Amino acid sequence: MIEIAALRALVAVEQQGSVVAASEAMGFSPSAVSQQIKKLEKQSGVTVLERHGRGVLLTDRGMALAEYGRRILGELEELQSTLLADPAKPSGVLRLVAFSTACRGLVGPMLARVAASSPSGRGGDGPRRGGDGPGLEIRVVAEDPREAVQAVASGESDLGVVHNWHSVPLVIPENMVHEDLCMDTADVLLNADHPLAGRTAVEPSDLVDESWISTPAGAICNEALLAILAGLGRVPDIRIYDPDFSTHIAMVQMGVAVALVPRLGRPELPAGVVAVPVVNPMQQRQVGIVYRKTMTASPSIRHVVRLLREVAAGLDA
């Protein structure tokens, strides 16, 4: 009889592309994953992997078995998250992945609400144990949206908070559900002494000669910045690359660059830094949540999604 753990190892190798990557995703050693693959080959009577240079490739039968394995694991996940779960009591471990500003602006406040509902939490005059609700444990990892989508699609995470700039579409795999959560607007941050700092709004044509600080090349927010001037046939003069928006704000305060920074999770701007909206077009990103279709009716997923919506509604207000 084929064991579920062995099937899970094969599916992870197929999704991650190697035994080493699969072991990292599963939290096991490479030798443990290899042992599960060997066990699967013995149980099924077929060779599922073959060496290719320093790596491995799935055989034709291995690909077929992985496809069956994905379906079986999906049905098992759906069974565990719905029929075997108490809809009135979200429980278990929920692995959440979100981009950094969403961690500050949405996930943090959501965790506070979960903690407030925990019997183990303290009253309003004392600390609460963050992330634990009644039987529900939430673990959070910060990743950019593309990596977050991949983590949820492959089963490494259960729920993702992602963003989708209108100018840089985010591709959602067919095995996943995407729900809109809120709209987030980005402003250009300027030093208070900058000639444009007194404007109520600026257009892309006003920004063609500026020196910028940006998130790293290839990041979605970097691509959104490039798109601002694309219609003018120009490329932003990016002098500094840094993934942390706090650094962007500091550089603007020092007067060495301007920056495009979303409002979600943005700290209070220090003296000397001014936020000016960009119009024609307005710079906005749609913030949403993603999860696998097999988790649609999961009490834990629905509970956390509901809390995230409450936090987002408060931001809109």
Rank of each mutant, 00 (worst) to 15 (best):
Asn222Cys: 04
Lys89Ser: 12
Leu264Phe: 08
Gly155Tyr: 03
Leu264Met: 10
Val287Pro: 02
Asp193Leu: 12
His303Ser: 12
Gly133Asn: 02
Ser23Thr: 13
Gly231Pro: 01
Gly62Pro: 08
Ile72Gln: 09
Gly69Thr: 05
Ala259Pro: 02
Val97Cys: 03
Gly27Cys: 09
Leu226Val: 03
Ile72Trp: 05
Asp132Val: 12
Ser34Cys: 07
Ser167Ala: 15
Arg113Ile: 00
Leu189Ala: 09
Leu170Thr: 03
Val48Ile: 13
Val177Ser: 04
Pro30Val: 12
His163Cys: 12
Asp180Val: 01
Ala259Asn: 08
Val279Trp: 05
Trp165Tyr: 15
Asp206Met: 00
Leu232Asp: 11
Ala227Asp: 09
Ala271Phe: 09
Ala153Lys: 01
Asn175Phe: 05
Val274Gly: 13
Ala142Cys: 07
Cys103Trp: 04
Val97Leu: 05
Thr200Trp: 00
Arg54His: 13
Ile72Ala: 13
Glu3Ser: 09
Pro119Gly: 13
Lys38Glu: 06
Ala148Tyr: 03
Pro270Ser: 14
Gly74His: 09
Ala22Trp: 04
Pro169Gly: 01
Leu49Ala: 13
Asp60Cys: 01
Gly121Leu: 05
Glu75Tyr: 07
Ala112Thr: 03
Arg292Val: 06
Ala98Gln: 03
Val304Ala: 15
His178Leu: 14
Gly53Ile: 02
Arg234Gly: 11
Gln80Pro: 00
Val149Lys: 01
Ala64Arg: 11
Leu170Glu: 07
Thr215Cys: 14
Ala85Tyr: 00
Asp193Arg: 12
Met254Arg: 15
Leu307Met: 14
Ala32Gln: 08
Ile4Pro: 01
Glu24Met: 11
Ala21Phe: 06
Val177Ala: 06
Ala32Val: 06
Val276Gln: 07
Gln284Phe: 05
Arg309Phe: 13
Arg146Tyr: 10
Arg199Lys: 13
Val33Leu: 00
Leu57Gly: 08
Ala112Ser: 15
His303Lys: 07
Ser211Ile: 09
Arg285Phe: 00
Glu203Thr: 14
Glu41Ile: 08
Pro262Cys: 12
Pro145Trp: 03
Ile138Met: 03
His52Gly: 01
Arg285Trp: 00
Asp206Trp: 03
Leu73Met: 14
Pro169Cys: 05
Glu14Thr: 10
Ala116Met: 08
Gly131Lys: 00
Pro119Glu: 14
Leu190Met: 10
Gln36Leu: 11
Arg95Val: 03
Val279Met: 08
Tyr291Cys: 10
Ala217Ile: 00
Glu223Lys: 15
Glu310Ile: 02
Ser23Phe: 04
Tyr241Gln: 10
Pro119Ile: 08
Gln286Asp: 07
Ala88Asn: 08
Met183Trp: 09
Gln286Lys: 14
Val93Met: 07
Ala32Tyr: 01
Glu137Trp: 09
Leu7Glu: 05
Lys89Arg: 11
Ile301Asp: 03
Glu67Ala: 15
Gly155Lys: 01
Ile228Ser: 04
Val19Ile: 15
Leu49Met: 07
Glu210Ala: 09
Pro267Asp: 14
Ile213Leu: 11
Val19Tyr: 00
Ser29Asp: 10
Met1Gly: 14
Glu147Asn: 15
Tyr241Asn: 09
Glu210Val: 01
Val97Glu: 01
Leu196Trp: 02
Asn175Trp: 06
Leu159His: 04
Arg61Cys: 01
Ala22Leu: 02
